[in-house]
Design a protein around this nucleic acid. Sequence first.
RNA 1: GGUCUCGUAGCUCAGCUGGAUAGAGCAACUGCCUUCUAAGCAGUAGGUCUUAGGUUCGAAUCCUAACGGGAUCACCA
Length: 596
Amino acid sequence: MYIQQDLLSHLHQAFLSLYQQAPELSELKLQPTRKEFEGSYTFVTFPYARLSKKGPEQTGQELGQYLKEHSELVRDFNVVKGFLNLVIADGAWLSTFQTLATDASWGQLPARGSKVVVEYSSPNTNKPLHLGHLRNNFLGYSVSQILKACGYEVSMVNLVNDRGIHICKSMLAYEKFGKGETPQSSGIKGDHLVGKYYVEFDRHYRQQIEELVGQGMDKEEAKTKAPLLLQAQEMLRQWEAGKPEVVNLWETMNSWVYKGFEETYTKIGVQFDKYYRESETYLLGKDIVEEGLEKGIFFKKEGGSVWIDLTADGLDEKLVLRGDGTSVYITQDMGTADLKYKDFGMEKSLVVVGNEQDYHFKVLFLILEKLGRPYAPGNYHLSYGMVDLPSGKMKSREGTVVDADDLVREMEETAERYTRELGKVDGMSPEEAGKLFEMLGLGALKYYLLRVDPKKRMLFDPQESIDFQGNTGPFIQYTHARIASLLRRAADMGIGFQDVDVSALTDLHPSEREVIYQLSLYPEQIRTAGEAYAPSFIAQYVYDLAKEFNRFYTEVSVFNAEDSQRRDFRIALSSAVGRTLRHGMSLLGIEVPERM
RNA sequence: GGUCUCGUAGCUCAGCUGGAUAGAGCAACUGCCUUCUAAGCAGUAGGUCUUAGGUUCGAAUCCUAACGGGAUCACCA
């Protein structure tokens, strides 16, 4: 970080001094030197040959020479074609390390005085969470942590979809077939119990359709005429009218689901600062429709329905209020957007929602912009891709949905089996061992889901997800445990590693240099990850750092170093890596063990 | 059909604000535990970056088209 800045400004100087003109400082870029060449940073001179009026090669030579003479950071340089490779003095690496190792706010960028609201999870209360929700939850939580590290003030909110026809389906099936069953009486977790009746509804509903078709009715018509569906729709009307029996049942079943969700959230380590419930927000937004009509942004069609014409923006005409005056999805989303702004006054507002709703949010944000909402420029749809299984898409009707609770439990079981096989639990208390299995199982799962670019659809391969080797969560956790072990030994020997003094050292082992280089990248990585809303950047970084450390660990010995200064430096270096791994993993919502 | 999106090693993914001989992990093969945790490290093999054009000193990266996957286009949510 600090080395790069220095190099760039010297480079700028070099241009001025050699060629009397220079590109903007912000235009100058360095890239990491490829492994096969000597050096740490590379400057590409091709684009500047025109400016220097020399060949790229000669430009590189001249710039390199200037840097070597004027910057004490540059020990040497070489030029290959148009690539100027800069070799950094070990002293510069050492002081870089000194700076970052003693930085009390390492991993925390300066406060920006800016608020961000991240909405994620947003489940329906008619069935339990599945694999797709896990990607959503892990992403939302992780992005929130990353934005906090970027200096934003972040609030996490959950907009629970707790009303609507789908809930009524579960309610109706429960009423008909439930026989008064409760989570207590059945021993089934609340959200799963309600989900069971949602499935039950679907089963009977399809039976009815078949019967109707058997009686000669058209299939499409049968779908809308099946008695169960009509009853569910009636139930929804009764709910909206506030019919006590219906509302009571709704409250009871919802409370089961909430309790079940709470359990899952606690288990997977996500939290929310505020819950919004659709049952409380679904009427919002109608006043905005009025406002839009007055402003001439919306228009009415015969029948009274309200629309917006977005054809000029390359989109379609979009309905914003039904002819009977009832809301559609986007109506209440407009209302909720206003509500969030009223509650938080945020500068940025993210919603973590799957990419099947890309169009919806494109429209919504455009409408809010046309309405002149002050928060409109800060709206962002963090759109993530679907999670596929090796067998293809998850299909609830085919029973291929991977249940979140089941999956988490299986991951922990696998972690336990594997850990016991390796004999890693010897000397651990049952509590410590249990905690470890949880960390490893969840760590593997979270890392697996966060490792890939959020925007892309991804494959969940159960076999691969429980892999604990290579680019996985447990690999990084293992590296941390190794470091913790080193630090325990150092502490036993009474060696301090909080205040580093590297002044006695003048040279570095290549693997030490690489580790410092990797460490120095961290703040920039956090910034980039925050700008891209991409935990995958952090996952990749943490992996690279762990990998680099493991190489260092096998190539040199910490406790058999040639002298105590070198030994203490290596301990401090290990400590800094451990700290960075722990911090980076925390940005992914992953805990890291002291031993494993 | 319109719009959006993806296509990189056998598999899963990086790289994509243009730069050197395209990188990891898994799977396969070969080495390394009497020294700090081998859930580790080193190495071998594996690629016409879907295809065809274009822009450029330079393209996996940018543009266009084709092919192939996916999403979306309801007075559903």
